[in-house]
Simulated assay, not measured.
Amino acid sequence: VLSGAAMKVVFNDEDLKTFLAVACEVSPDHPVVISKFVEGAKEIEVDAVANQGQIVNYAIGEHVENAGVHSGDATLVLPAQKLYVETVRRVKRITRAIAKELNISGPFNLQLLSKDNEVKVIEANVRASRTFPFVSKTLKVDFIELATRVMVGAHVTPAQISLLDVDYVGIKAPMFSFTRLLGADPVLGVEMASTGEVATFGEDKHEAIITSMRAANFKLPERNVFLCMGPMYAKLEFLASARELVQMGLDLYCSEGTYNFYKGHGLPCKLLHKPSSAIQPNVTDALQKGEIDLVINVRDSKADSGSLTDGYLIRRKAVDFSVCLLTDVKLATMVVHALFRRKMRDTPYAIKAWDEFGNF
């Protein structure tokens, strides 16, 4: 998806008609651009410096969330941990081709998506991106200095970077201000919503995701978790993580559909009814009383309007009552598995200064 203003992902003709009607009311004199949205694709980010079309240095990172979440809101992992070797080869080939074709001298950034090992370019930005400082800190190579030397015509020697020798992982996590945005839906999408970001490092991706989430004010659950997993694929994908939550001694509370699914798979869980229901026990009351530590709510974009309203109310109540919220199943599974590994090893992660990482 190519990011822009007033964007919307639609899944059927009715959604398209509704959105076009709104778009015409907002700006009848400007066209609406329609492009294909690829579901279930991994997003890859490349930051690089080129000199007269030749690559000087590059870095390849991956988003935890699937393509469709704005890059400013996505959780970025560097070096990439889950890319096929052939995918990396194709990304490098595309990066070299673009640098050569545009005869780039200076910094540039590529955002790509990969599905079934087929790589496509989302956009190419011939400028330094927000991830340049993160890349420089992680790889301990000042990409901005390299780009500046190229642009002023000074001599540039490529830094020796071997990603296979980087024995730690850096993760950049977004920070949001939904508590200050009255009524805003705190869900990730194609338009950027974050107002800041943090970056931390760990011996592996599990340690790095925990430290980065904590730096972004994420509180680790100690008593329980409320699950509202809308689409079936999310319920299935999160099944192993739900078992890990139980093994950590956390109580599971679920919305009705999620409750029926996980109960049917032998997991001990308790039912909390949705906000639109007057039946008790209700998730709204539980959130207001501070009885929930973490809400994991993956919305079903193809659900009926009533379900969408309930999902919004759950997410909004979580934010309003300062309950930690995860809305992406990929990020949720990664965080839960990292918490599980941390619990099982029964030893705290070592606290290190930035310069203690990476003796490569």
Score class of each variant (00 low, 15 high):
Asn12Phe: 13
Val141His: 09
Leu139Gln: 06
Lys205Arg: 10
Phe340Arg: 03
Val156Met: 14
Leu112Ile: 08
Lys343Ser: 15
Val46Lys: 04
Ile55Lys: 08
Met151Val: 08
Pro186Cys: 10
Gly183Ser: 04
Arg149Lys: 12
Leu181Lys: 02
Pro79Thr: 01
Glu145His: 15
Ile210Trp: 06
Ser322Arg: 06
Val121Gln: 11
Ala318Pro: 01
Val85Trp: 15
Ala173Cys: 12
Lys343Gly: 07
Leu245Arg: 00
Gln111Tyr: 12
Ala23Asp: 07
Phe143Ala: 04
Lys302His: 14
Asp300Leu: 10
Ser277His: 03
His273Arg: 03
Ala215Gln: 04
Ala216Thr: 00
Gly306Tyr: 14
Lys100Leu: 15
Gly183Phe: 00
Ile171Cys: 05
Val329Ile: 11
Val198Thr: 12
Leu83Thr: 06
Ile210His: 02
Ala216Ile: 00
Tyr58Ile: 04
His206Lys: 03
Gln280Val: 13
Gly53Tyr: 09
Tyr84Thr: 14
Cys269Ala: 03
Phe134Glu: 02
Pro281Thr: 02
Val329His: 03
Gly264Arg: 00
Ala99Cys: 11
Val119Gly: 05
Val246Asp: 08
Pro186Val: 01
Asp251Leu: 11
Leu326Tyr: 05
Val33Arg: 08
Gly153Ile: 05
Arg127Gly: 09
Val152Ile: 14
Thr284Gln: 04
Asp116Leu: 12
Phe261Glu: 00
Leu339Gly: 01
Val126Trp: 13
Trp354Val: 11
Gly311Met: 02
Pro174Trp: 02
Ile104Gln: 06
Arg299Gln: 10
Gly72Asn: 01
Arg342Trp: 15
Asp142Gln: 08
Glu101Trp: 11
Leu2Glu: 14
Leu220Trp: 05
Gln247Phe: 14
Arg96Gly: 12
Val336Met: 05
Ile98Pro: 00
Val22Asp: 13
Gly106Ile: 08
Lys352Ile: 09
Ile144Lys: 10
Lys42Gln: 05
Ala74Ser: 02
Val10Gln: 11
Leu331Val: 04
Thr200His: 13
Leu20Arg: 06
Pro221His: 03
Leu20Pro: 03
Glu86Gly: 08
Thr18Asp: 12
Arg214His: 13
Met344Arg: 02
Ala234Ile: 04
Lys263Asp: 05
Leu325Ile: 07
Glu222Pro: 01
Lys36Gly: 09
Ile296Ala: 04
Lys317Gly: 02
Cys324Ile: 05
Lys36Asp: 10
Arg180Tyr: 12
Lys115Gln: 10
Ser162Thr: 09
Val319Leu: 03
Leu20Trp: 07
Val56Gly: 04
Lys274Phe: 08
Ala80Asp: 01
Asn51Arg: 10
Trp354Lys: 09
Glu14Phe: 15
